[in-house]
Design a protein around this nucleic acid. Structure first.
Length: 422
DNA sequence: TCTGGGGTCCTAGGACCC
DNA sequence: TCTGGGGTCCTAGGACCC
């Protein structure tokens, strides 16, 4: 049975989430900013039409935002994560074979749906997701994931598709591929795109006709798969069970530069705590911890950045222990006299928390630490993140990132429920 | 004043082994 | 004069994704 994939992608996801709870913004330009209100990470169609580019720093377009009365939001990942879960649960009702590819996208396997009109089915999905969650989605259908991605793009950009496009029943595929710039193909980034166009490969159609040997040489095995997929040969399967994580990171830019070791220690301690929480949530333990710090590379000031990696003798998921190693690392690489912009803690060498390898010379009471972490996580789950934390994380945290225009956690906090006024 | 955060996979090259 | 051939493992860096 030949495979059939549908890619369901939420339109302008973060901006759409905000609009669900502020419907008066429908039809108006909306943007969502990254952490620290730094860059644009989502735009409504109206904001795109004004010419606001993806990833542009907010301060560069301040005038444009004001002139067009663009509604600006700080990012609210609690809200987006919850809305994402609602969308995915809805999709699951349509199709048990589902790969959650990112916060706003899922691949569905429609391979067993042979006799059905798939485009019609796509329309049904669209309608129900909108009705149940308030989020508009587009659906692309094809016999490979790469083509489904392109079909989705066509569905989004061509109003008369009604938000659904099916490549598998499309007669003039070469003509359509011929109109898609090669850089819009999934897996072709800026570097590969400029290499390809300099060799006359300008469109998705050209890429699908490219010479196998040449592609293998210049784009490697990944490029070869892309070409095969464009030709309709499926190389990428639906991945329903996510492969185990290889690393976990918590890194943030500071709201204002850090200039003292004391504040840097607070930040690193806080990031280590956060990444330890993620680790326990995944039921994993870490055997390697990496800390890094860096100055602001956009500024013409003295630059310094450094990284240190620490091997842990025994895998651990204890906040206390990870903080201790994090602080030990940062004290080694911190240098006085710089304005630091960002730091982070990364965990690697991840193993299942239940399969930790003991060390003969390890004398810590790990059973006790485990009990403490269980209590800590329960309290913070019950009473909200950060209710109980280590003193080394700091109290005032003046270096914390700013979110000046954050919307309420409408769906996950009883105190922030949306209100309806009669 | 002001420029995000968190991932994955592949490849090349070096160290080391027989 | 003459300078093996493989193989594995690890790491750093590059490129890509959302």
């Amino acid at each position: 049975m030949p495979p059939v994939f549908a890619l369901v992608d939420c339109n302008n996801f973060y901006a759409s989430c905000e609009r669900v709870f502020t419907p008066k913004l429908n039809g108006k330009p909306v943007v969502v900013l990254s952490n620290n209100d730094g860059c644009v990470v989502a735009r409504s169609n109206e904001a795109k039409a004004i010419g606001i580019r993806m990833g542009v720093p907010a301060f560069q377009i301040r005038r444009l935002l004001r002139a067009h009365q663009v509604q600006v939001f700080s990012s609210n990942y609690t809200l987006y994560g919850d809305m994402s879960q609602r969308v995915m649960e809805t999709l699951h009702q349509f199709c048990p074979d589902l790969e959650i590819y990112s916060i706003d996208e899922a691949f569905l396997s429609l391979s067993g749906f042979g006799s059905r009109n798939l485009a019609e089915y796509g329309q049904t999905i669209r309608t129900i997701v909108k009705q149940w969650t308030g989020i508009p989605v587009s659906v692309g259908i094809a016999e490979t994931k790469t083509l489904a991605k392109l079909a989705n793009r066509i569905a989004k950009q061509t109003p008369d598709t009604g938000g659904v496009f099916d490549f598998s029943t499309c007669a003039d595929r070469p003509a359509i591929l011929g109109r898609i710039p090669v850089e819009d193909v999934w897996g072709i980034g800026p570097q590969h795109a400029s290499l390809l166009t300099s060799h006359g490969i300008m469109t998705a159609l050209h890429l699908s006709q490219a010479d196998n040997q040449w592609i293998r040489k210049h784009l490697g095995i990944v490029g070869q798969r892309i070409v095969m997929e464009l030709r309709g040969v499926s190389c990428l399967d639906l991945e329903q069970c996510p492969s185990p994580k290889q690393g976990l990171t918590c890194s943030r830019s500071f709201g204002k530069p850090i200039v003292t070791l004391a504040e840097m220690e607070e930040a690193v301690s806080t990031y280590a705590s956060r990444v330890a929480e993620k680790l326990r949530h995944e039921h994993l333990a870490a055997t390697v911890l990496t800390v890094f710090l860096t100055t602001n590379q956009f500024k013409d000031i003295p630059q310094y950045s450094n990284t240190i990696t620490i091997q842990l003798s025994v895998g651990t998921d204890s906040t206390q222990e990870l903080i201790r190693h994090g602080l030990g690392g940062i004290r080694k690489i911190y240098r006085e006299g710089y304005h630091y912009k960002k730091a982070g803690v990364m965990l690697g060498g991840l193993v299942s928390a239940s399969e930790i390898q003991d060390d003969l010379f390890d004398h810590q009471d790990r059973a006790r630490a485990k009990q403490l972490m269980t209590a800590l996580d329960l309290i913070n789950e019950r009473w909200g993140a950060g209710t109980l934390q280590y003193a080394s994380n700091g109290i005032a945290k003046e270096w914390k990132a700013q979110f000046q225009r954050r919307s309420p956690a409408y769906t996950t906090n009883w105190n922030e429920l949306p209100q309806v006024h009669a």
